[in-house]
Nucleic acid binder design. Sequence first.
DNA 1: TTGTATGCGTTATCAG
DNA 2: CTGATAACGCATACAA
Lengths: 341, 341
Amino acid sequence: MSITIRDVAERAGVSVTTVSRALNGTGPVSPDVRRRVEAASSELRYVPHGTARSLITRRTDVFGVVLPDLFGEFFSEVIRGMDPRAQERGYHLLLSGSHDGRREIEFAVGAMRGRVDGMIVMSPGVSGARLEGCLPPDVPVVLLNCDVSGTAFSAINVDNYGGALAMTRHLMAMGHRRVGMINGAEGNFDALERLRGFRAAVAEAGGAVQGSEAPGDFTEAGGYRAAGELARAADPPTAIFCANDSMAVGAISALRARGRRVPDDVAVAGFDDVPIGRYLSPSLSSVRVDVNRLGARAVELLCHAIAGDAPPAQELLPTELVVRRSCGGGGDDPPFPQDFR
Amino acid sequence: MSITIRDVAERAGVSVTTVSRALNGTGPVSPDVRRRVEAASSELRYVPHGTARSLITRRTDVFGVVLPDLFGEFFSEVIRGMDPRAQERGYHLLLSGSHDGRREIEFAVGAMRGRVDGMIVMSPGVSGARLEGCLPPDVPVVLLNCDVSGTAFSAINVDNYGGALAMTRHLMAMGHRRVGMINGAEGNFDALERLRGFRAAVAEAGGAVQGSEAPGDFTEAGGYRAAGELARAADPPTAIFCANDSMAVGAISALRARGRRVPDDVAVAGFDDVPIGRYLSPSLSSVRVDVNRLGARAVELLCHAIAGDAPPAQELLPTELVVRRSCGGGGDDPPFPQDFR
DNA sequence: TTGTATGCGTTATCAG
DNA sequence: CTGATAACGCATACAA
């Protein structure tokens, strides 16, 4: 059994109410009593029991975060973006990862009821409309990278469509007339949006550009396999756009194994712009996504939802084209980060 | 205001107690009543209030995880290792990242009192002995990658020393007589242990091998800078061991920029064996650390500590030497993962 | 099989 | 300025 506020009260010779007031700075307390309470508290090494406090204050100071299985550094970076922002505002993060499908999400969300002041939910497999049915009505929610068409949730999404559109346009502008795309995991929302951007760009060109597609799964191995598939075609593409960087790395490896040079024979581009990309050889062209900021922004939106000081907003996180050597751009290979003199 | 157990009781026309019993399966309930309760519960979309329940059951079903600022994929992978294991056992993870120094840890730990059933604490900057003073006596704790000499905590540590020793020995066995090391972040426990392994291996060789060291910080940029420093020496090393893979990538990039070939002129090895390593060119030799398993094991130790079915254990997570092309080994570059036929 | 009463640790309310 | 008391939502010993 651990030290409670009553132990402190007894030791200080006052009531629990007074201890609460003295420690929380709420209400008036005489200097003498305050000192006695503080002494007793620290001698006993008393720490308030968060759960009990939450029950009455109706605040938990915790945000629930429900994430699916995530690929690569995304998981890491999104949490890294959230945690400092949350901490600034006095919140901790209650994590629940590895969820797919409505049933699991529903369960995770349920388990969080009464333990969190708000939730950030990412479920690229489940649409916002379906989520609406299983989310508690009394807790503010921000959706992350979900299909939110027709829902009233606050949400922040990566501009997957815009990024893919821009990169594909760039490849075509470089003169490529046969452009391939290696898709992300099947059914994944990000993957779908990136594909949509690719197709839109190809469609813009009318019949002038021939687009081809190969299935992928966001892994290096998947990119390796898919690149081989594309390369075996009768008229293989001269540029390959991969739905993420991991697959781009696999793709480059596969092309090299088949004796094709990057970017001389085939241009390759990725999506995400992972930190290591600029150090690869050739350095990797990619669509930069500031995942960190994505997480941070989600926390901010949630804070607004809780404070009620702003209407629900559905935002798009802009992406940025990063052209390096792997697609023949005027890149910076080898790299010289700014702090190298 | 949200739905409580009383609302369900009213709607089902029974007492609160009966609802509790029916829903939790504790105690006898007539089939008829059970059905009525379940109906009312789902119609009202009732979800028990975790906080309130915790107060009386004295279980929160939450593990606290206190992590420092972490480099690269470590953060991601360690959580990825913990989460599924924790979930298997019905626990969620309450995260508190970005902590350094005793004060901050102490604060984070305090904020978790009463909200968690156990804690996993990683504080490479603070020794277990010092931690002992600020950790609550009534909550089970597992230490992760800490200096635990002389403490009674359960702990799991990466075998940094053994891994660095083995890799340095390997480099010497390849015939290198001038071996350099690029260190990790200053004061970091992992970094210190890896350095200790390096020095031990060099010492074993007597005067036959000349070891040199350069400060680093676990980042690509730091590795780039440090490699330049080592290369500028009068007798530059013919092999460079980097305290992690990120720095190895930076180092290779720097050496290439100076016109030195890897591994022909200089061998390079890293530590961690990040997934992308085998796809680099040249593929990266490294000391494999199964961070995922590290997290999983920490959760298991914590479960044992809670159940009291095993004495506190201080374990070492074994590492594995992965020799690829970057240090001239008979590596597998380009890579052909097994599933490529 | 069901209900009543009590308590978990804390803060809020209202008297003193 | 201080203290007794209720309440938060739930589970449990005990009574019926």
